[in-house]
Amino acid sequence: MSEITPDLVRHLGVLARIQLSDDEVERLTGQLDVIVDNIAKVAEVATPDVPATSHPIALENVFRPDVVGGMLSLGEVLQNAPDAADGRFRVTAILGEEQ
């Protein structure tokens, strides 16, 4: 027995504020029914002894200790800048003149 009916699809369309034609309702009824059936199949296979995963390979963050390092001088920072002025990077304006 199908869980998705044309009336349910029309109701979902109203909730989503989407105007659906009769052809769209018919097509979506079949598509949503297939989706619900596939989800039910996955639910049958899922067992409590298999842990849920978001990624097939376990991931963990690799951290290193924070170590204070040497600081760059202003000249070293700006030496490869395409354009610099007054000890700052100089870039083209992206806002209008009124800003």
Results as ranks from 00 to 15, higher is better:
Met1Leu: 06
Met1Arg: 09
Ser2Thr: 01
Ile4Trp: 07
Ile4Val: 14
Thr5Tyr: 08
Pro6Lys: 03
Asp7Trp: 06
Asp7Lys: 14
Asp7Ala: 14
Leu8Tyr: 07
Leu8Gly: 01
Leu8Phe: 10
Val9Gln: 01
Arg10Lys: 10
Arg10Glu: 09
His11Pro: 06
His11Asp: 08
Leu12Lys: 01
Leu12Ile: 09
Val14His: 10
Val14Met: 11
Arg17Asp: 10
Leu20Arg: 00
Leu20Met: 00
Asp22Ser: 03
Asp23Met: 06
Asp23Trp: 01
Glu24Ser: 02
Val25Met: 01
Val25Ile: 02
Val25Tyr: 01
Glu26Met: 05
Arg27Cys: 01
Leu28Tyr: 15
Gly30Ile: 05
Gly30Gln: 14
Gly30Met: 14
Leu32Gln: 06
Asp33Cys: 04
Val34Leu: 13
Ile35Trp: 15
Asn38Ser: 07
Asn38Glu: 11
Asn38Arg: 10
Ile39Asn: 07
Ala40Leu: 10
Ala40Ile: 00
Ala40Asp: 10
Lys41Asp: 06
Ala43Met: 04
Glu44Met: 05
Val45Ile: 15
Val45Glu: 05
Ala46Trp: 02
Ala46Met: 04
Ala46Lys: 09
Thr47His: 09
Thr47Tyr: 02
Pro48Asp: 11
Asp49His: 15
Val50Phe: 13
Val50Arg: 15
Val50Asn: 09
Pro51Met: 01
Pro51Glu: 08
Pro51Val: 10
Pro51Phe: 02
Ala52Tyr: 11
Ala52Phe: 06
Ala52Ser: 08
Ser54Gly: 13
Ser54Thr: 11
His55Lys: 15
His55Tyr: 10
Pro56Leu: 15
Ile57Trp: 14
Ala58Ile: 07
Leu59Lys: 11
Glu60Asn: 09
Asn61Val: 15
Val62Arg: 07
Val62Asp: 04
Val62Gly: 03
Arg64Cys: 06
Arg64Tyr: 06
Asp66Thr: 12
Gly70Asn: 13
Gly70Glu: 09
Gly70Ser: 13
Met71Gly: 07
Ser73Asn: 01
Ser73Arg: 00
Ser73Gly: 02
Ser73Val: 03
Leu74Ser: 07
Gly75Thr: 02
Glu76Ala: 04
Glu76Leu: 08
Glu76Arg: 06
Glu76Asp: 14
Gln79Phe: 12
Asn80Pro: 00
Asn80Ala: 13
Pro82Gln: 08
Pro82Val: 13
Pro82Thr: 02
Pro82Tyr: 03
Asp83Lys: 02
Ala84Asn: 13
Ala84Gln: 12
Ala84Thr: 08
Asp86Pro: 03
Gly87Thr: 02
Arg88Thr: 05
Phe89Trp: 00
Val91Asp: 10
Thr92Lys: 08
Ala93Trp: 09
Ile94Arg: 12
Ile94Cys: 10
Leu95Asp: 14
Gly96His: 05
Glu97Asn: 14
Gln99Ala: 14
Gln99Tyr: 13
Gln99Gly: 04
